[in-house]
């Protein structure tokens, strides 16, 4: 009964939410009557409102850059797919932001802000247990480095301060053909800062794990490597 009721609440419009359940005729009739009651409709509406509310909270900035109609459609699509049900913010937020990123125009400021919200979430999550790594390992040529699991590089299509101002009500700046890279990492003060050209090149290289010796050979500066490692933007691999 719990399974049947739970499935009905989660997906009342799905063709056969009770498919595969062993229910006798009387049980099916009882559930059909329940699903047709005002109280059930009220419960479903409350559930959907809670789910949409949780999701909206996790992507407030991104959604604020989309028209109201599209915002509602994105939230409806997410809730219809079963999203919004977990109570914990982080697990829900990461999944919803990825869902949004797949549906936002590219390039767009909304997509940039979506990536910023994702990156901030990840860096904040990593910062809880972040410990500055052992710097001496950076002298071992065989040591492997990779992009940090709690790090990101977000390419902005406008000066970051202009995009921030737009989130506070100023007009959106035009999409720039050049990008401004911003690094996010659990050990960075404030979790983010502008990336240098060297850091951006290094980040691109670390999308696949690399031995330190290879990075040195390619001319990546040792100090830039150390800076990224100490901030958790890059991390030691296996």
């Amino acid at each position: 009964m719990q399974l049947a009721l739970g499935r009905l609440i989660r997906a009342p419009t799905r063709e056969d939410p009770l498919g595969g359940l062993r229910l006798d005729t009387a049980e099916r009739a009882r559930l059909a009557a329940l699903a047709d009651s005002p109280g059930f409709r009220c419960t479903v509406k409350a559930q959907r409102s809670w789910c949409a509310g949780r999701a909206a909270k996790s992507a407030q900035l991104t959604l604020s850059l989309r028209p109201a109609e599209e915002r509602q459609r994105l939230l409806d699509d997410w809730v219809n797919s079963g999203g919004g049900t977990p109570s914990f913010f982080t697990a829900e937020a990461a999944a919803f932001l990825e869902f949004l990123a797949e549906r936002l125009p590219c390039p767009s400021h909304a997509l940039t802000v979506c990536r910023v919200e994702q990156a901030t979430l990840r860096a904040r999550d990593g910062a809880i247990r972040f410990a500055v790594p052992d710097r001496s390992w950076l002298d071992a040529p065989d040591r492997v480095l990779r992009a940090g699991r709690y790090a990101a590089l977000v390419p902005f299509r406008a000066a970051p301060h202009l995009l921030l101002a737009a989130l506070e009500g100023q007009p959106l700046p035009p999409i720039s053909p050049t990008i401004t890279p911003v690094l996010f990492g659990p050990g960075l003060p404030g979790l983010s800062r502008l990336a240098t050209g060297e850091e951006m090149a290094l980040w691109e290289r670390l999308r696949a794990p690399q031995a330190l010796s290879a990075l040195w050979r390619e001319g990546h500066p040792r100090e830039a490597i150390a800076t990224l490692v100490m901030a958790g933007v890059a991390e030691y691999g296996e």
Partner: peptide, 8 residues
């Protein structure tokens, strides 16, 4: 485990 999204 699936969350229903609302206590029942």
């Amino acid at each position: 485990t699936l969350n229903v999204g609302i206590p029942l």
